[in-house]
Design a protein around this nucleic acid. Structure first.
Length: 1153
RNA sequence: GCGGGAGUGCCGGAGCGGUCAAACGGGUACGGCUAAGGACCGUAUGGCUUAGUGCCUACGCAGGUUCGAGUCCUGUCUCCCGCACCA
């Protein structure tokens, strides 16, 4: 019948030839519609893709017709792992593979009739594009937004590469839901996204995005306010042997680090102090070593702090295996390279030091040293004017020692007091807490077991145990760790409580996140569930510092608003039976209350005394024995008998009756309450006030921490404050002591961009042995990805020597390239800017052009990128703004998240599931316009939608009827009725499309179509076609041409509506018409069923002013009978039963015959 | 655990506090048009009732606000999604 594919081809060709959708910057108002560009998968497009693109295409076509200069581009996110993996499988080069896929994609997208400006095509795998990735990387580097760092990173063994934090979902790789992410310690490139954490969070409110996505981003950034507190972490130095080994030159033995000696001795350590080593002007190893061995004791616990030549002596001694020690701290070691020594220019000043060559012959046995000392630290002065920094670095590498470069107060850290040296022994560790009010409840510390600096605080004694623990953790999957018990192990180190100076143990734990805060937490077992569980497991001290406060918000005793609170010290006495497991409950007679024994504390009374008196008064029992004091609980409630709001501060005391001795209770007491003996279960139901329920929980020893806020206790001068006040005051106190401050913490981490894979943008960095890490110079960009590499194990780029080996841009010596590539999210973080100026080969883009087009007015894409792409792109925009490249704060003002298309089996349509429907197939049978129509009429485009091969029939019917109608309609005049409806529909549809309510728009268009009559004016018919055009572009173009138009409908103006032509009267008329139809059929049915009568003629009697509402022809068609319409006033009407009398406004009378 | 969203006829899904037995589409049934139709057109599709009427039962469940609730509020159940030991 209709050859859809012929029509489609015809118009697609014409659009392309005439460049109908090509845009340039001009004076018109711009509108930038953007769909998240696709990854060009090898399997091509299916209906799910068609669904996504149709949503954007409709919007673009609509906006274009609305008169906007619409930028609607398409491109491909063509770097990435799948291509690499698929290419390896298919033994095809990723480039060829990718470019084939893209070709396929473009063809298929063109067949969908999408109105892209194809001249703006971009592909991220082309050097023309990724050159600018490299360029931005270098710019970020210049601006301090890039750094390289060793960190514990997420590793996916299937991807064979690291993953960014955002790419780990539920402990699994975002691509491989079945692959556990491992942690590895690796040196990687990071982008400082955290620098913009605050702005990224703050600007969320500027975005017209769905609340859902906004909240997801907020949670991801995860800002929390709290206090940073410095804890001193130290090894227990008691009875430990320290040896200070200076050696060389001019410092006197008395002046050398006396301050440090004092610090150590204060903590119980023993310090042996070396005088200058013998004969330092011509040092001989033999002489000096004998001297040291004779004078000092070394054992596996001793800590040697070496300085100057003392370091070299120690390294020699350790090489020889003659001693074994615990820790070696090398402060400012003179460690020139062998070449330098031989050349006689050991140090920066180039003065020869022949003495050194006697000794520092570089014949160290590094493995031996590692064997004989447990921990090595090297401390290097940043501004050392003698020893070049890279020399100790080399040593540190060989020894796997930690190197710290920091400026000393005096050269070589010979100042009065050197914090950096001290820190190696007694390190300061900042921790973050949101609950400084619980500071006095800290009874231990927990450092993350994954913390890269954990080993620094593990002592010799605990090393084995810690190692065992770490091994255990490593062998458990990340997924299981979350379900695992809180576990840990003592590190051997202690922390000093900043306010009480108590010594508290430091544990390594599996439940602390290494990357959040400082990776160590202060543990408050009484008020944190995790810490509580940990403390229970390892029998650690639990100190209660927060007393609960309850507010009664249910009857009885619900707080009455507005009444002031009467404070009162009180007791809650739990009294146990002398022989049974039962407790006394008081049932109140005038109120519906059930409580324990309770009462106030008078002046000069202890809580125990007060409780005993209450017990005697209220129950008569004479011999209660105090067993346990549960501390206080505070309750705000309305005291019903006394008619006041009360704030009771109650001591909870637990008594056991020694015997049944009882005196008589006064009548007055008897009237207030009665005594009940209840077991624990009964009490649960019986007790009404929340404070008493709390007391019961304490009696039950509930295995829970009290984590809410409350009133401080056991907190010295902060006792009695509520949590809110205490947080402020304790933080202030810490600030005064300079060991804490108010601070903000984010969950957001820096963005790890290194990927150990081939198919990505090479990171433009060169490693030079002499110059270190050198960025590639801008003029040398792009660093092209070489074609020839070997895939297999490890990073493919290392297999291309031509790529790998370069000359250092600075010193021209041989150097090596960085072989990691960038995360492909880097590519997609700025592609929307490149579309604005995609052919520029001088700059990433012309700012004039981005200023015109940006920001993207309408972004369309899936919600799965809420915390990945969308955060990166927002970060990029802000960073580029600060660097002067763009003038906007946010890239995407409006965001629309489309739903997913499901296959007929109910699952998301995907190739791997095998439920895909191919557009080509559908197009052949139904036409792509029909498919488009069906896709968006099923459900709102932001909801998931199920494909149905039956459902599409409905759309096909509509399209056919439409063609049929336009082909046969008589051009003439439009009736007022149709005109009214048309204008109303234009109004509604315009708004619906604007709001992406395509499904509703279609309903209204169909409704209008049903009301169209056999005659219509050309103008109105055109308006009607325009309304449908965004949904069905090919068919409408064809019909548009058919009715005699030469220009493209695609470029026509969207119809405007005329409010004055919208007449509700017509709607009412339509309604009464429909009512009439249903009335008639109703009667026909009733009569047929009831009396078996059949009628062939219908007479309708309408009020005279409404008679035009009821067209007999239309009625006849509707009810499928002959219908004759009379006006009631018509004298010649046929009305044998005088039914016309029954006619009412909007409701004509009927007679059947 | 925290956060977000949703529960409406056989199905997909519409539903400004009143005009809702519920749009539109699909399915199903019946009828018409036809040589025939899986094409097209019409009717029906909670129950009872009626010459075009009226009533009842219905929007997960239970309450509440209101003259009036599918629509607002509270609680509850179920489902979906996101984050998850974030100190």
């Amino acid at each position: 019948m209709v050859d859809f594919s012929k029509i489609e081809k015809k118009w697609q060709k014409r659009w392309e030839q005439k460049k109908v959708f090509k845009v340039k910057e001009n004076n018109k108002k711009k509108f930038y519609v953007l769909e998240m560009f696709p990854y060009p998968s090898g399997s091509g497009l299916h209906m799910g893709h068609a669904f996504n693109y149709t949503i954007g295409d409709i919007y673009s076509r609509f906006k274009r017709m609305m008169g906007f200069n619409v930028l609607y581009p398409m491109g491909y996110d063509s770097f990435g792992l799948p291509a690499e993996n698929a290419a390896i499988l298919a033994k095809e080069h990723p480039k060829k593979f990718t470019e084939n896929s893209i070709k396929n994609f473009i063809r298929q997208q063109k067949e969908l009739g999408l109105s892209y400006d194809w001249d703006r095509l971009l592909m991220t795998h082309t050097p023309e594009y990724y050159k600018w990735n490299q360029y931005f990387f270098l710019k970020f580097l210049e601006n301090g937004l890039v750094y390289k760092s060793k960190a514990s990173v997420n590793w996916c063994s299937k991807c064979d590469t690291v993953l960014a934090n955002e790419q780990v979902h539920n402990g699994k790789c975002w691509r491989h839901k079945d692959t556990d992410v491992e942690t590895k310690q690796l040196e990687q490139w990071f982008i400082k996204t955290t620098k913009y954490a605050d702005e990224l969070l703050k600007d969320i409110e500027k975005l017209q995005w769905s609340e859902r996505i906004k909240i997801m981003q907020e949670n991801w950034i995860g800002k929390s306010y709290g206090t940073e507190i410095e804890f001193e972490i130290f090894e227990d130095v008691k009875d430990k042997e320290f040896v200070f080994l200076h050696a060389y030159g001019d410092s006197s033995k008395d002046a050398f680090w006396l301050w440090l000696r004092k610090e150590i001795e204060n903590k119980g350590g023993r310090v042996s102090f070396s005088p200058d080593l013998p004969n330092t002007n011509n040092p001989q190893y033999k002489e000096q070593s004998e001297f040291v061995l004779n004078n000092y004791n070394f054992n596996e616990n001793s800590i040697v702090i070496g300085h100057s030549l003392g370091n070299i002596l120690m390294m020699k001694l350790l090489s020889s295996g003659r001693i074994k020690i615990g820790k070696l701290i090398m402060v400012a070691p003179p460690l020139p390279t062998k070449e330098r020594i031989i050349s006689g220019k050991a140090f920066i000043d180039n003065k020869p030091r022949p003495a050194l060559s006697n000794y520092c012959d570089w014949k160290f046995d590094f493995n031996k040293i590692k064997e004989n000392v447990r921990q090595i630290f090297i401390l290097v002065d940043k501004n050392d004017h003698i020893v070049p920094i890279n020399q100790p670095m080399e040593i540190a590498n060989k020894l796997e020692a930690q190197i710290i470069t920091a400026m000393g107060n005096k050269t070589h850290y010979n100042g009065e007091k050197e914090e950096e040296v001290l820190n190696l022994l007694f390190r300061k560790w900042k921790i973050f807490t949101t609950r400084p009010d619980t500071l006095f409840g800290v009874t231990f510390m927990v450092i993350s077991a994954q913390h890269p600096r954990l080993h620094e605080i593990v002592t010799k004694e605990q090393k084995k145990e810690v190692d065992n623990f770490l091994r255990k953790i490593k062998s458990t999957k990340k997924e299981d760790i979350e379900k695992l018990d809180k576990e840990g192990v003592f590190t051997g180190s202690y922390a000093l409580h900043p306010l009480t100076n108590q010594k508290i143990p430091v544990y390594a734990g599996n439940f602390v996140i290494a990357e959040y805060g400082s990776g160590m937490v202060m543990a408050v077992p009484a008020h944190d569930q995790r810490d509580f569980e940990f403390a229970k497991k390892y029998n650690l001290k639990i100190v209660n510092v927060i007393e609960p406060v309850y507010s009664q918000d249910t009857e009885p005793g619900k707080i009455v608003d507005g009444l002031p609170f009467d404070h009162r010290d009180a007791i809650i006495a739990i009294v146990k039976h002398w022989s049974e497991e039962k407790y006394i409950g008081l049932k109140w007679k005038k109120v519906v209350w059930g409580t324990f024994i309770t009462g106030g504390i008078e002046k000069n009374q202890t809580p125990e005394e007060a409780a005993k008196i209450e017990i005697e008064e209220e129950t008569g029992y004479l011999n209660p024995k105090l067993i346990k004091d549960f501390g206080r609980v505070h309750g705000r409630f309305y005291h019903v008998p006394k008619k006041i709001n009360r704030f009771a501060h109650a001591h909870v005391l637990y008594f056991e009756l020694q015997n049944s001795k009882q005196k008589n209770i006064s009548e007055a007491e008897k009237e207030i309450h009665e005594i009940k003996w209840l077991n624990l279960k009964e009490l649960e139901k019986f007790l009404t006030p929340t404070t008493h329920k709390h007391a019961l929980r304490m009696l039950n020893c509930t295995q829970e921490a009290y984590v809410d806020e409350g009133i401080l206790t056991n907190s010295e001068k902060f006792n009695g404050l509520n949590s809110e006040e205490a947080k402020i005051k304790i933080t202030k106190e810490l600030e005064n002591k300079k060991i804490g401050k108010l601070t903000v913490n984010y969950k957001l981490r820096d963005w790890l961009i290194s990927r150990q894979r081939y198919w990505g943008t090479p990171i433009p960095i060169i490693y030079c042995d002499s110059c270190g890490i050198i960025p590639v110079q801008e003029k040398d960009l792009p660093v092209k990805l070489p074609d020839k590499v070997k895939f297999g194990k490890g990073n493919p780029l290392t297999t291309n020597k031509k790529f790998l080996n370069v000359k250092c841009p600075r010193c021209k010596k041989n150097a090596k390239r960085e072989t990691d590539t960038m995360d492909t999210f880097f590519d997609s973080s700025w592609y929307f800017l490149r579309y604005c100026d995609n052919k520029n080969n001088k700059k990433p883009f012309d700012t004039m052009k981005t200023n015109y087009w940006m920001p993207v007015d309408q972004y369309i894409g899936g919600a799965e990128h809420a915390c990945m792409h969308l955060i990166y792109a927002r970060f990029f925009t802000k960073a580029l703004r600060n660097m002067g490249y763009v003038n906007i704060d946010e890239p995407f003002i409006k965001l629309f998240n489309q739903g997913m298309l499901h296959g007929e089996d109910g699952f998301v349509m995907s190739k791997s599931r095998g439920n895909v429907v191919l557009p080509e197939a559908v197009s052949k049978e139904y036409g792509i316009d029909t498919a488009r129509l069906f896709l968006i009429s099923g459900a709102a485009p932001d909801k998931d939608m199920e494909w149905s091969s039956k459902g599409i029939d409905g759309s096909l019917r509509f399209v056919r009827r439409l063609i049929d109608y336009v082909s046969n309609v008589k051009m003439g005049k439009t009736s007022r009725k149709v005109e009214s409806k048309l204008n109303k529909t234009i109004k509604d549809v315009t708004q619906d499309i604007e709001e992406f309510k395509y499904n509703l728009a279609i309903i209204k268009i169909r409704d209008l179509f049903d009301s169209l009559e056999n005659e219509i004016s050309k103008k109105d018919l055109e308006k009607f076609l325009k309304l449908i055009h965004p949904f069905c572009p090919h068919i409408t173009e064809e019909l548009w041409e058919k009715i005699g138009n030469k220009k493209f409908l695609s470029l026509e103006k969207w119809p405007e509506y005329d409010e004055s032509k919208i007449d509700i009267k017509f709607e009412q008329a339509e309604k009464s018409f429909n009512n009439l139809v249903s009335d008639i059929t109703n009667v026909i049915n009733v009569m047929k069923e009831k009396q078996g009568k059949e009628f062939s003629k219908v007479y309708v009697y309408s009020l005279p002013n409404e008679v035009n509402n009821y067209n007999s022809k239309e009625l006849s068609i509707k009810v499928n009978k002959d219908v004759i319409v009379y006006s009631v006033s018509d004298k010649n009407k046929y009305d044998p039963e005088n039914k016309s009398k029954k006619a009412k406004p909007g409701k004509p009378a009927i007679f059947l015959e």
